[in-house]
Design a protein around this nucleic acid. Structure first.
Lengths: 210, 210
DNA sequence: TAGATTGTTAATCGATTAACAATC
DNA sequence: TAGATTGTTAATCGATTAACAATC
């Protein structure tokens, strides 16, 4: 499947997907040219064609690519048609935001429940998802075959929670705590650093390259 | 300043900064080799040296780079020693999380206040920051010279809020709403898409390249 | 048909890495 | 000193783009 795909292409495929699903219904039912996609995203058209060639069955000269097919092809390739369970640790603002976030479904994720250690909220629900005590994570994750976790707990308990997660069989962690997490081999952590994102946006965009 | 710096280097510099400030105090007071940094971040050591050469005054053979100096040099280059005001529109969970987030200061950002249109919370404070009505944004931003804004309002009002922001003189927008924003020329938008981040983490990491 | 578009091959461009001299 | 490290130059590698034939 992933034959000949480069890391750069892999980074652009989600951009195409994102752009295509953001198009109005009317356009999603028609065709779109690589040239149009390239222009909208500020890329080279040949590059777009090459990228699309690696995942789609191809477009037609003069007509372009069938938009719906393209969305499906990219989505399938990236695995967005899976249904993967996700758990969230830490029911602060970020944690709550995750439970209430609507957009995950489109990418094949189901937020299953939240975990916290504040007895006052254990057993309550947020956006229809139950809040469990953190000590119940291992059982829950094994039972539901969960291998994706989001950490939104405070910095000082992040490592502890992380260890609980990896012990529970979680292999992918999205970490909002501003700290480096030590994980066993094979577990992949992505550190979400909002400050850095903002810095890259406001500080480096516009820096002349070369 | 930005002479000869490539886009790839620009993407790695924040990683170095992040890694260096995450080191324990004891190590921050000493020296660090490019080799060590490279190993910690999974990069090539020559590459790290080249990157550092573009912003720092250099290291010493056998000893390495002065850690504190490196942090300062990178921080200065990336503008982390500025003090830029930031406003947040939308006082839902994400918005509140932004106001309460501690990490911005380290990167030279001050979250000044929040905006919303719910009369019940106008005038209250979150994490010591006042909540104003969205109609007051223009006045506030001009008065405080704000040019960075964060949008965490619901999808349906995002474009409206975005326009209010750009009218208020804001030039950099971090957008959490899952929608493409139309902005005037010169305004830069970064779309934060948590679903996509999670998808890239759980779906594409591990895909064999080439 | 003519023109727009795809897709491929070859050339260019840029970034990474290997090799090595210089330095402490 | 010997060994670890920096920093530079040249070679390699990979990605982008230009050119063009094929297609509808």
């Amino acid at each position: 499947m992933a034959k000949g795909i480069t890391s750069q292409t892999l980074q652009r495929l989600p951009m195409y997907f994102n752009y295509l699903i953001s198009l109005p219904e009317s356009k999603q039912n028609g065709h779109i040219s690589a040239t149009a996609i390239a222009e909208a995203l500020g890329l080279n058209d040949v590059q777009v064609r090459k990228d699309l060639a690696s995942v789609s069955s191809g477009g037609r000269p003069k007509i372009g690519y069938c938009t719906a097919e393209l969305i499906s092809d990219i989505g399938q390739f990236l695995g967005f048609e899976n249904h993967d369970g996700v758990v969230v640790a830490g029911m602060g603002n970020f944690g709550k935001a995750m439970l209430e976030h609507k957009g995950f479904a489109e990418y094949g994720f189901d937020i299953l429940c939240g975990f916290d250690c504040d007895e006052r909220i254990i057993g309550t629900e947020i956006a229809g998802r139950k809040i469990y005590h953190i000590s119940e994570m291992s059982e829950f994750c094994h039972e539901h075959n969960v291998d994706i976790g989001i950490i939104t707990v405070p910095e000082k308990s992040a490592q502890e929670v992380c260890t609980i997660m990896t012990d529970a069989g979680i292999r992918y962690i999205l970490n909002f705590a501003p700290i480096h997490l030590n994980v066993p081999r094979g577990v992949i952590v992505h550190n979400e650093n909002i400050s850095l994102t903002l810095a890259m946006l406001a500080r480096t965009s516009g820096m002349i390259i070369e």
